[in-house]
Nucleic acid binder design. Sequence first.
DNA 1: TCGTTGATGGTATGGTTGTACCACAAAAGG
DNA 2: CCTTTTGTGGTACAACCATACCATCAACGA
Lengths: 207, 207
Amino acid sequence: MPKLVDHEERRAHIIDALLRSATNSGLHAVTMRSVAVEAGVSVRLVQYYFDTKEQLLLAAMERLATRMGERVQRRVRARGGATDPRGIIEAVLLEAVPTDEESRAFHLIYTEYAVLSVTDPGLGGQQFLAAPSEMEAFLAAQLTAAQRDGAAAPGLDPHQEAVVLLAVSAGLGLSVLLNQRTADEAVAVLHYHLGRIFPTPSRGAYA
Amino acid sequence: MPKLVDHEERRAHIIDALLRSATNSGLHAVTMRSVAVEAGVSVRLVQYYFDTKEQLLLAAMERLATRMGERVQRRVRARGGATDPRGIIEAVLLEAVPTDEESRAFHLIYTEYAVLSVTDPGLGGQQFLAAPSEMEAFLAAQLTAAQRDGAAAPGLDPHQEAVVLLAVSAGLGLSVLLNQRTADEAVAVLHYHLGRIFPTPSRGAYA
DNA sequence: TCGTTGATGGTATGGTTGTACCACAAAAGG
DNA sequence: CCTTTTGTGGTACAACCATACCATCAACGA
């Protein structure tokens, strides 16, 4: 055998090239050739590591979903002290708002995938089903804990509020992606809404 | 001259064919041929009424935006009695939740266009900028009026709440589109959230 | 009545895309 | 040492796409 190369590393390299290519011209414009050029390899190589384009797209989607999970978890962990429901909730929801350019690119591709998976039968849309419902339960649990501690308003339905929170962050994130709003505005609105759920701001937050 | 045909009617017919075609296989899969077949005309005819594909897509997008406006206005008017802020707000926001199949198809294409317009330079993304900010002001005004009437909680910031409402309905609508939630669930959550803004339910609404 | 013009069909064309095929190099195993 | 396997490049190919071009037919204006 020749160089005896690390397959997983090569695959990751190519997938990253796909994501970069999609960032520039949109997921719909991604071709085998554009990925190959971006990765600096021949088209044959892309074929070699991912037999077909569909499999390449699928692998990239899985990697994207994994990264999304990592992003959220990193945000939660960055908050350090585990037992501050409002802080945790805020951290998780802020992840949906694309602030820097890298985050924007990430969320754009993620959204493109989500929309594409509705019509494209090859892209199993199941990936986009699991994560949100987990998140829903997680947020509801945090809200319940916050109510027990007296931090959150007592009259609220934790589950319904969790769904609302998820919808708000998704909606705000989308509006930022569509250039309807700046990221700063979205963050401010999110803070405002959290202020309504947690009557006493935990840290002199907005409004 | 021959039949002396109504151009606008022909154009509308072809655009409708495009929307139908996009409903089945996604906007990205729409081709001149698929539109022609769906419209029951030759490809040449599509070329004749819309010189290029880009112009066809653009015209369809404009028609879509117009329809969206009509939909919202129809909902508002269907409420009849003009001066019920909660009812009006509810009607407007419910439009974003795809209930029947026709509404679902409509919103799917609309979302596909919105996402596409981010990367595609030909599709002027300005169309998607104007409407939401108008809506924002409209909702804020309704909330202010509701506060004056004592229907809405007094402590709220009408503008921020308007943005939240818009984000919630967009987020819920998207989640329904992505099959993460049923339309009924989304409607229930929206009712719940409105119940928090309007402490006295106007009509024995949910929660 | 006749040519001019609007409306339509068919087909050719140049480009692009995904994928299959062929060739070759290089390292490992016998 | 030779053969088998793994990685890589180049290229060919069939399909499809948007668009340009050519032809035709019918009706209105003169």
